[in-house]
Amino acid sequence: MITTELVLMLRRRRVWLCWALLCLLPTVVAVLLATTRLAPPPGRGGAFLSAVLSDGQLFPAAALALVLPVFLPITVAIVSGDAIAGEASAGTLRYLLVRPVGRLRLLLAKLVSVAAFTLLAVVLVTVTSYVVGVLAFGFGPDAELGGSGITSLSGATLTPLQLAGRTAGTVGYLALCMLTLGAVGIFFSTLTDSPLAAALGVLAVVVTSAALQPLDAAEAVRTFLPTQHWLAWIDLFRDPPLLDAVRTGVEVQLGWILVAFGAAWANFTTKDVTS
């Protein structure tokens, strides 16, 4: 069933459109930066954006920071909101459940499919932005001196191996953060027959979380907000890497996934399916 869901996902045109749009935004930014050479002033703009002009290898980090707040959540909301509600609205859910397959197994297959979508989304953005970044901005001053490293946020030079390891860590971390939204989307998808309503529900969670984040009055719940730890991956590009915030972020995201998937299971396995 998992293989079937994965194949179905890869056959969907909207999935490929989401990935293409995700890769397009950083490409547009890279083209604009490369032609105007006008980077944001230091300390302003997206993370790493002021530094990419001098080293294109930093562009994947800048690209991830660009798509993280809005575009990535929107695509995950669309795909996860469609997981169950899409079947229901198309009238295929009851036929799907006629097969000798448990509802929990179906939910798990949907979760794996959404996880694959988020992981591939982050990987595709990283790979395309690396290619675009190197083409637009080059390998940086270290390459001119015969080296091949990039400057960490702390000033120490990272070797290509260290850079690859930290980028892989970032990809995994962001995929997990997005899987949280995916699990919430699957839960909402079990509540309604409308994929759009489920997707909007996910975006409502994101907006609410982002709105509560800066409020002093929300201090007690801040650490549990799903968006609170999204930028923790930046700490991986310090030297030595700082893992405290990433560790907390992983714990919070896993908690959300567990609860949201549990809620989806509690609702879906006892639901009267008529669509």
Binding site: L258, V259, A266
Partner: peptide, 19 residues
């Protein structure tokens, strides 16, 4: 079905509270 939903929802709620 409603009884099971209630039990499962309670289980999930208790898990969330524990976390």
């Amino acid at each position: 079905g409603r009884r099971s939903l209630s039990r499962r929802a309670l289980l999930v709620g208790a898990g969330a509270a524990a976390l």
